[in-house]
Structure formats: C-alpha cells, structure tokens
Amino acid sequence: MIALGLSLFAAGGCAKNTEVDPSITNIAVSNPDFQTLEDAAVRGNVAILLGNSNPGDPEGKFTVFAPTNSAFARLGLNSAQDLTVLQQPFLRNTLFYHVFNGTLPGVALTPNSVSPSALGPQRRIIRRADNSLYVNGSKILGTDVRASNGLIHPIDKVLLATGADVLNSALALQKGDVFVQPELTYLVEAVLYTNLAGALAGSPGGAPLTVFAPTDQAFKNLGTMLGVPLNQPSDIRKLPEATVRAVLLNHVVGGTQGGKFTSELPENAVVASAGGAPVALGAFTNGVLTVRGNGNGTNTANMVIPDVQCTNGVVHVIDRVLLP
C-alpha cells in the first residue's frame, strides 16, 4: 500500500519527478492507480492547492483519503470525459470531503472516531468484525503514504457528502446540481405527492435515517410492471396516494439502523422500515449489500451509489423500487 499515492495533477500539467521529498501532487503524477483522481483534481480545481503547503494548518499539512481508479469506476467514472457528467462545484466539494486540514495518521483512525473534512461534514471510522477498517462506507486500503505536505490514505470508494438533509439532497439531484442530467426526479415527485417532505427533512437533533432512494429508471420499471406507464415524474400521481406513501415509507429505516453506512448495516438480516414492512439486506459483498422489499419476491435491488452522507442520515441510491 505504501506504493499507492494520490493522483493529483497541477493545473497546466507538470512533469513527473523523483525529488527526495515530493509533495502530494508530485507523488500522484508518477502513480497510474490514481489517474481518475488526477483528472478529477484538475476539473475540480484543487490540484495546485494540494501540491503546496496547507495555509490552514500551522505545519502546512493535509491528510487525504484517496480513491483509486476502481473507486471512481464504481460510479461509472473511468476517464476525464466521464467526469463531465458531474457539475464542477459538486465535484470540487466532493474532493474537499476527502481532505483533512492537518495530520491525521493511521494510528488516529480508531473505531467510532470522527474527523472534520475540509468541506465541513465529518467522516466516521468503522472497524468490521474481520478487522478491516473503513471511513464511512469506504475501505481503507493503506495508511500513511508520506508526502512533504501531508499524508495519503488510499480508499476503495469515493466519499460522498451533500451538506444538506435527505430531502434537499434529493432536490439537488432533481435540479441537476449534482449530475448534469437530473436524477431522483420521480422520488422527489412522489415525496411531494404524499406530503412526506417534512419527514425526510428531519429536525435538528432528530434521529438519523437510512434511506434507500430508487433511481428514475427504477420507477419507470415499476410502472411497466404495474401496467401504468410512468413516462414522466408527474405520472406518479396516477397511482393512489396511499399506495405511493406506503411504498416510500418502505425505503426509510430509522431506529438502531438509522444513519448507517454499508460497512455497518447488518448483512443477511431483516430490518423494519418506517412503514412497518420488513426490508431484507443481503450479504456485504465488495462494499455493498443488496436490498429487497417484502413484495419484491426474489428480485433484489442493487446499490448504484452507496453511502451518501447527509446531515440527517445516509442515502443509498438503488436500482429497484422496494415494495412492501
């Protein structure tokens, strides 16, 4: 893991170098395992910042949780061109969520400890029964790759945080503030139709939620199955409000399983949804779990964007509507 480094690239490009005490950026340039992160840093306009001394730390240090190429590939981001599907401000904020102002060595990454990010929202360290270590839902592949201006901890999934509650995070996706192409538009319409906006917005100090958020295509597929074409979000209103409300509540989990990342959800277990119906979780495999509603039969939903940190919980975007 010591061979892994953060692939950040200074704006305008810079040559690979072998200086004795390289910066984070210089380490990155020579490491192909972080090519997508390098491209993201350029597009997000943070490469020069992380190639220099940190002005926000007395010792000039950064600590960076660094997603590998494979981590970005989980989100369908394999190249610089792929990154253009994300709005630049969101990409920049996402990169800042990976950064700690100061030195956060591996020995400080203890279970249940939290650390603020340069974006603001905190990240939580989780240790699983097999002794593997995670930051939120991302596995820490190695620690303490040293650079002249800080430390690098490689991880296997991109860390995501919105800085907003579940409702407003969904609205940001619906308005195209995250992806250039709007997403979760059907979910937002369903929430408004059933007057559940207040429940997803939460209240200060309220109990955290775990929310499974179906994609637009998941709702379209549901319409095909029901024989009620859902060609646009407003078509959700063709369905009885009580039915839509029951379905939505089946995607929300609170109580002891509220606010959980994939790394801490109980695998091969059944949890109770906010609507009272059971939701079955599959095995923890490659950092994600399948999810199945009682009315889905043997059909399971996959997590396509897991572990999105919101101010009142965690959202996992899934590819199938969970039926109660």
Rank of each mutant, 00 (worst) to 15 (best):
L4D: 10
L4K: 09
L4W: 11
A10F: 04
A10H: 03
A10M: 10
C14S: 15
C14M: 15
K16W: 14
N17L: 10
N17D: 15
E19Y: 14
E19I: 15
V20R: 09
P22T: 13
I27S: 10
S30D: 14
D33L: 13
F34Y: 11
L37Q: 09
A40L: 05
A47G: 15
I48P: 00
N52S: 15
N54G: 14
V64F: 07
F65N: 02
T68H: 02
N69W: 07
A71Y: 02
F72L: 06
L75H: 07
S79N: 10
A80F: 04
T84V: 10
V85G: 03
Q87A: 05
Q87T: 14
L91T: 04
T94L: 13
H98P: 10
F100P: 05
G102W: 01
P105R: 01
L109P: 02
P116V: 10
A118M: 10
G120D: 07
I125N: 00
N136M: 09
I140E: 04
G142S: 11
G142K: 03
T143N: 13
R146D: 12
A147E: 03
A147D: 01
S148C: 06
S148L: 12
L151D: 04
I152S: 08
P154C: 09
I155T: 12
I155P: 12
T162W: 04
T162K: 01
G163A: 12
A164G: 00
D165L: 05
V166P: 00
V166L: 06
L173I: 06
V180D: 04
Q181W: 00
L187S: 01
L192A: 14
L192R: 14
N195P: 03
L196M: 10
P208N: 06
L209H: 03
F212L: 11
Q217W: 11
L226V: 09
G227P: 00
Q232G: 07
D235P: 04
E241R: 15
V244Q: 07
V247S: 02
L249A: 00
V253N: 01
G254Q: 00
Q257M: 08
G259Q: 02
F261P: 02
F261G: 06
T262F: 08
T262Q: 11
A269S: 11
V270Y: 01
A272M: 09
A277T: 06
L289Y: 05
L289N: 06
R292F: 07
R292M: 09
N294S: 14
T298H: 14
T300N: 13
V304T: 12
Q309L: 14
V314D: 05
V314M: 06
I318H: 03
L322N: 07
L323D: 08
P324S: 05
